[in-house]
């Protein structure tokens, strides 16, 4: 390769490297803000502010969904690997809200264990399969999300 071309090649590679390092540092510094939501373990560790609108996310623990028979009030527990957080909500839940499903809720922490949500979004997972496969998996004892309840 000729000298001047080599020089330009290094200039291009150097630019890409420099920009990557710069962007990497910025993203690293901002990572707290880029995370869409706090996990229950972050809340327990005191990382999430009280009385400020934030988002929390986790899996809905099966058997914890309690609906009020007279109003729209509903509460459920979300969990990540370590901690639990109770979410209170009084509006219509999304169609794909199910036990075992991941959700992201917007609202405020009333204390370290309770979260008052103003909106609940369902977080979908990356698994795609036909109904027969899902049934077969369930029969072999694999816990599955249910479409209808």
């Amino acid at each position: 390769m000729k000298k001047h071309r080599q020089k330009r090649l290094y200039a291009v590679l150097g630019t890409v490297f420099g920009v990557s390092v710069a962007v990497g540092l910025v993203l690293f510094a901002l990572s707290e803000n880029i995370n869409l939501f706090y996990k229950p373990s972050d809340v327990e560790a005191g990382k999430a502010p009280l009385d400020k609108t934030i988002k929390v996310g986790g899996l809905v623990v099966p058997g914890t969904v309690v609906r009020n028979t007279e109003t729209l009030d509903v509460s459920f527990v979300i969990r990540d690997n370590q901690s639990d957080l109770k979410v209170h909500f009084n509006d219509v839940l999304p169609d794909l809200f199910k036990e075992g499903q991941g959700i992201v809720a917007t609202g405020q922490l009333t204390d370290q264990q309770n979260f008052k949500a103003s909106s609940v979004l369902a977080k979908h997972d990356e698994n795609y399969m036909p109904p027969e496969v899902a049934r077969a998996l369930e029969e072999s004892g694999h816990p599955m999300k249910k479409k209808n309840d």
Binding site: I34, L36, P94, L96, L121, A122, K123, H124
Partner: peptide, 11 residues
């Protein structure tokens, strides 16, 4: 229909 919102500013 899946999440419940058209848009959210996630990463």
């Amino acid at each position: 229909p899946t999440w419940g919102t058209y848009w959210v500013f996630d990463a």
